[in-house]
């Protein structure tokens, strides 16, 4: 296949991982109005859950738990479950807080988790990470075909998640979340119990983020703790803001737009030195795009619109 086409397809495949993360963030922060800067926590938990279940047994120079080399399906299921469980646990103390206080607690938790990932060698092989995690079904396809297959699978996943999140956003449950976002005190008088709604949407977000973490490892075949810095959180937020916070289509589009913006320059065939410069410049480009979009389209590419019933 043509180089460019393969490149385009693999970028979109990566974008679908971000789409899921972005949709998860949207229902939590766009629809329910929470100020979460810790979504990378559950992304990381999901990724590590998948990795230690699916990777082969640790070699003599490595340490990590399990290494069951089991069916990736179990890895994904575990990633979803543990993503949700960790969100449930972190939510217990932090959901009592609002706005800035919630924001700082979630980002603090995500840093504590990342530092734990890098230091608890017995669990995660520390900063060295885990490599060569085999991709499911890989042996049945030629490399080119496998890239297309991944694209199709990840596309399906992200569409399914989109449908799910969208259905939920426009359900009575979604209505209660929006009511809480708009006016928490008034929402209480409408028989809505904030802690219950917040906790459930937080766990749901955790499950989805965990799921996308598993897909991320599937795609990359490796996992290192530096993949889970607050940078991921800011990236996803940026994508959501670009796309249009509160709008699920916007979240979908924003994630794709963002990944294309970030990755396209890496297609250029450059000398190593120049490549370093370009890799910095694309960060600057993302920054510039974000500033300009907020200046001229403060509500993002697709803004949240009134729901017509």
């Amino acid at each position: 296949m043509e180089g460019f086409l393969i490149f385009a397809i693999s970028i979109l495949t990566l974008a679908f991982v971000y789409v899921i993360l972005c949709l998860a963030l949207n229902i939590e922060c766009g629809v329910a109005g929470m100020w979460d800067l810790g979504i990378v926590s559950y992304f990381g938990v999901g990724a590590y859950s998948y990795a230690i279940i699916v990777a082969p047994e640790a070699a003599s120079y490595q340490h990590y738990l399990f290494g069951l080399e089991s069916n990736p399906i179990y890895g994904i299921v575990l990633a979803i479950i543990l993503g949700g469980v960790s969100a449930y646990l972190i939510g217990l103390p932090s959901l009592r807080l609002r706005r800035e206080y919630f924001l700082i607690t979630t980002i603090a938790f995500s840093e504590v988790l990342r530092i734990t990932f890098s230091n608890e060698n017995w669990l995660t092989n520390g900063v060295a990470g885990i490599y060569n995690i085999e991709q499911p079904l890989k042996s049945y396809f030629s490399p080119d075909n496998y890239i297309v297959l991944l694209f199709v699978i990840f596309l399906c996943f992200s569409v399914i998640v989109y449908k799910m999140v969208n259905k939920l956003s426009f359900s009575t449950y979604g209505l209660s979340l929006k009511a809480l976002r708009e006016n928490e005190a008034l929402a209480k008088t409408a028989r809505i119990e904030p802690s219950k709604q917040y906790h459930s949407v937080y766990v749901f977000t955790g499950c989805l983020a965990g799921f996308s973490g598993a897909l991320y490892v599937w795609l990359n075949t490796l996992i290192v703790p530096t993949q889970f810095t607050p940078n991921v959180t800011f990236f996803v937020w940026t994508a959501l803001i670009i796309g249009g916070i509160g709008n699920n289509r916007g979240a979908f589009l924003g994630a794709i737009f963002f990944v294309i913006l970030l990755e396209t320059l890496s297609f250029l065939n450059l000398s190593a030195e120049l490549a370093l410069v370009v890799s910095s410049l694309r960060i600057a480009l993302v920054g510039l795009a974000l500033i300009l979009i907020l200046r001229y389209l403060p509500n993002g590419l697709l803004r949240e619109k009134p729901t017509v019933l």
Partner: peptide
């Protein structure tokens, strides 16, 4: 202020008696 970014109709529906808000 109501719920500013909910529609007028939604503002009413939030209050309807047989709402089930369970996730």
């Amino acid at each position: 202020t109501g719920f500013p970014r909910l529609t007028v109709l939604e503002n009413l529906l939030v209050f309807s008696e047989n709402n089930n808000f369970e996730f």
